[in-house]
Design a protein around this nucleic acid. Structure first.
Lengths: 340, 340
DNA sequence: TTGTAGGCGTTATCAC
DNA sequence: GTGATAACGCCTACAA
């Protein structure tokens, strides 16, 4: 069915060992006759459609050539942006990525534990459950003794996350440069979770830092309850904008805040960016509606996490200090210079 | 380092074979003494932290217990919704999922071919490159001889895709039931690709079918060029709405059409759903802004694809007729009964 | 440089 | 019901 080294060896009239060496480039090829033979074997292998059996390699080498990503469905859009970096880095290290979406309940119930944890099949694990992963779950995962790197989680070691404070500061600074002085910060804390996601606090902090640094007064608008109903949500933002009608710009926590805000502004006759500049942190890369935003550097987070993980795999029990990845650029769609 | 059957066997004072049988539940346990021994072994294995080595299992059984997903980054949001079904089904079949994001260029260049293709490591492959995957690429992938199921692709066999015509028909029907008569269909073909995605044609067709079935005149609004600039895009939709100011409802191709439309309507003083009903097919599940939509049944597509794949793996060379998965429900956010 | 032999951890086979 | 033994495909000492 599938071609093995033995089959190639037989056809080439050499031993299995020679074939293996030729295919793995472990022949020095000092003589030209050897070089030619190596070439012939490689060509033969390709013609026969040979493909290395990773399972056999793994039993022998005690390395699976696989890393796992453990995440939950909710992380989806963020995970998607992480993926690009993860796969780029993984293919650089010649690693396969085993991807598992498992909710918390699935982790705690031993019968539903994912295969990546239950069985020996990956060299290391990228865990992406966000900031609010319970300690019990972290310990549970640690208990499996697999080298692990945590994404979007903040501990002193083995974590990689975006530098949210700096990102929000950058966005605010850009608006100030454009001449804006009355700038709001709008956010909606996720009340379902215990304290806020640290990124919420950080984004607010970055805004406040930028404002106070320029001697401006920060004004933070917080929505305690964001209605699920479309019309209600728009109304709510409309009221807020009416309250703060002197403001010329808004920095939003994320695009879920920015979108209804843009509609509400339009209903008040304020069209972005001419009448109102709206900048936001783009959790999901802003694929939906074009808004001026500063994109969370998730691709870089993913790539650096894989690099960190390979490091941890190589050196099984040495923790690595966590990394805060800086934000880079701001796109221009819904912000403009203040027209005085 | 990791516990093996031999280590458990030694500690339990039995043979490796007995341990394997006990852990794999292959003992009939006719006698109570045997049952007790089995229990003791299972407990011992758990205490010692035993985890099956999947690589060893795979070399022996010639099954990797893995399926691969081959996709490209662009498919992200759709892939995300597929994932839920895929992982649910995969864990049901006790399969790991190896996930690879590879662009077309990576596939054609043999040096960059993904590990899932280059090496023997999966039992089957889910390929999700969408409708416009070139024949050369399909043949290239088929050339590897791995059992494959194609997602969101339309061939007579081995494909699973959503029934877009039926979905769009359902959404239109709902608006008609609510009393609407002048209903637009708005879409923006993706000019980058050669013909349209079949789903574009199908969604239009479903709308037309529903309208003509009720003796109504279908009006299709097509935007040839959707500007990247936010303000321009809004203006364009505003003009279209002004042209069709008698229309009371719009069916949109997807949310990328619906969002700017809602803003444009607001600028014209028409607030959804009171003054304009907007329904859309939700490619990405509508996580951004709440819009009335009918969600593409991607979760179901994913699950059925995995089921089909296991079937193909079991029966290596028997193609299976393709499946069109029906749409289900319509959420209510931006549609309302026509007020006469 | 090549080939032989042995082992990785598991499962299947077959005597006992 | 149990346990020795032989595979699975690959890699690596070590001897030739």
């Amino acid at each position: 069915m599938s071609v093995t080294l033995d089959e190639i060896a037989e056809k080439a009239g050499v031993s299995r060992t020679t074939v293996a060496r030729a295919l793995n480039g472990k022949t020095k090829q000092a003589w030209s006759s050897t070089a030619r033979r190596v070439q012939r074997i490689q060509k033969l292998a390709e013609e026969m459609g040979y493909r290395r059996n990773t399972a056999a390699v793994a039993t022998r080498s005690r390395r699976f050539g696989q890393i796992g990503i453990l995440t939950r469905h909710e992380m989806g859009p963020i995970q998607h942006n992480l993926n690009k970096g993860v796969f780029e880095a993984a293919s650089r290290h010649d690693l396969n990525v085993t991807y598992a979406e498992v909710e918390f309940e699935g982790l705690t119930d031993p019968d539903y534990a994912p295969k990546v944890l239950r069985e020996l099949c990956v060299d290391g694990l990228l865990v992406h459950y966000g900031w609010d992963i319970p300690t019990t779950i972290m310990d549970l995962i640690r208990g499996y003794g697999i080298p692990t790197v945590w994404l979007n989680t903040r501990e002193t070691h083995d974590c990689v996350y975006p530098d949210d404070r700096q990102g929000s500061e950058l966005a605010t600074q850009r608006l100030i440069e454009l001449g804006h002085r009355r700038i709001l910060f709008a956010f909606r804390p996720n009340r379902k979770r215990h304290p806020f996601h640290y990124s919420t606090q950080d984004r607010e902090q970055g805004y406040v830092d930028a404002m106070t640094h320029h001697g401006l007064k920060p004004v933070v608008v917080q929505i305690d309850h964001q209605p699920e109903d479309y019309a209600e949500r728009i109304t709510l933002w409309r009221q807020i904008l009416e309250q703060h009608d002197k403001s010329t710009a808004v920095v939003c926590q994320n695009e879920r805040v920015a979108y209804p805000l843009l509609v509400a502004a339009a209903l008040l006759g304020r069209s972005a960016p001419a009448d109102l500049s709206v900048a936001t942190v783009l959790d999901t890369g802003g694929k939906g509606m074009p808004v001026s935003g500063i994109t969370v550097p998730l691709e870089s987070v993913g790539a650096q996490a894989v690099d960190m993980l390979t490091e941890r795999i190589r050196n099984a029990d040495a923790s690595i200090p966590s990394i805060a990845v800086p934000y880079q650029s701001l796109s221009r769609q819904t912000i403009a210079a203040l027209n005085t």
